[in-house]
Simulated scan of single mutants.
Amino acid sequence: MIRDEFIESIKSEFAENILGSEYLRANRVIVDVNPDFILQIAKYLHQKMRFRFVIASAYHTKAGFEILYHFSDDSNGNIYNIHVVLPQEKPEIQSLAQFLVAADWIEREMHELFGIVFLNHPNPEKLISEGNWAEGVYPYRKDFN
């Protein structure tokens, strides 16, 4: 699927929940989405579009906690990044691990490093922090004061 067709397809399916899009390179697109619809959008990409979930990455900015979900169209090498921004005060989002096993570890890691809560995660056990830092400490959070 070429980039323009992808943008048209996802906009027609999710209309007002697509907040913007940007072409980064010839084979990479970022789509900003309403975080309340991440589960539906990810299911659409994985189940209907047949894209492979690659990984997710998070970072903390003045805007909030930002997550990029990386999906690949392996038929042509295009990468589609789904971008959400979660509020500073209550960074919560539905877990993709509910239907994508590959999201399990990265969501657990993002929770431990940033304190992002992945709602309905099937296995919210600690992954890396046990004995490394105190409960409630999130080492990748920044102080913007």
Rank of each mutant, 00 (worst) to 15 (best):
G64E: 07
E16S: 09
N81S: 13
K48G: 02
F114C: 08
I128N: 04
N81F: 01
E5I: 11
E130L: 10
I55H: 12
A102F: 03
Y140E: 08
Y69C: 00
N123D: 14
W133M: 04
Y23D: 13
N76G: 02
V29D: 00
I7Y: 07
D73W: 02
R108V: 05
L119I: 14
P139F: 11
A42W: 11
S12G: 09
E8M: 03
L119D: 08
D32W: 15
K43L: 00
N123S: 14
L68R: 02
H121P: 10
I30D: 06
I18K: 06
I82R: 01
H46K: 12
F144A: 08
D4C: 04
S21H: 15
E8T: 15
I7T: 13
D36M: 03
E130D: 12
V33G: 03
A63Q: 14
Q47F: 05
G115P: 05
D104V: 03
F118S: 04
F99P: 04
N81D: 11
K142S: 08
K62N: 08
G20S: 11
N123K: 14
G136C: 06
N132G: 02
N27K: 15
Q88Y: 05
R25A: 12
H70I: 01
T61S: 13
M110D: 12
P91S: 13
Y59R: 14
D36H: 10
R3M: 15
H60T: 00
R141E: 10
E125Y: 07
V31S: 02
G131D: 07
S12D: 14
F118I: 06
T61W: 10
P124W: 07
R28Y: 03
I18C: 11
F144K: 02
N27P: 00
F53T: 06
S12P: 08
G136H: 07
L100Y: 01
I82V: 14
N145T: 15
E130T: 13
N76K: 12
S72E: 12
F118T: 12
Y44D: 08
E109Q: 02
I41Y: 03
F14R: 08
I10K: 00
A58D: 13
F118M: 00
E112W: 01
R52M: 15
Y59C: 12
I30T: 10
S95T: 09
I10N: 03
H83N: 14
F6V: 13
K48C: 01
F65S: 08
Y44P: 11
S21G: 05
Y140V: 03
Q94S: 13
I82L: 13
F71I: 06
F99L: 09
Q94K: 09
E112A: 02
E112M: 06
I30P: 02
N145D: 10
G131W: 06
D32G: 03
A102G: 14
M1E: 04
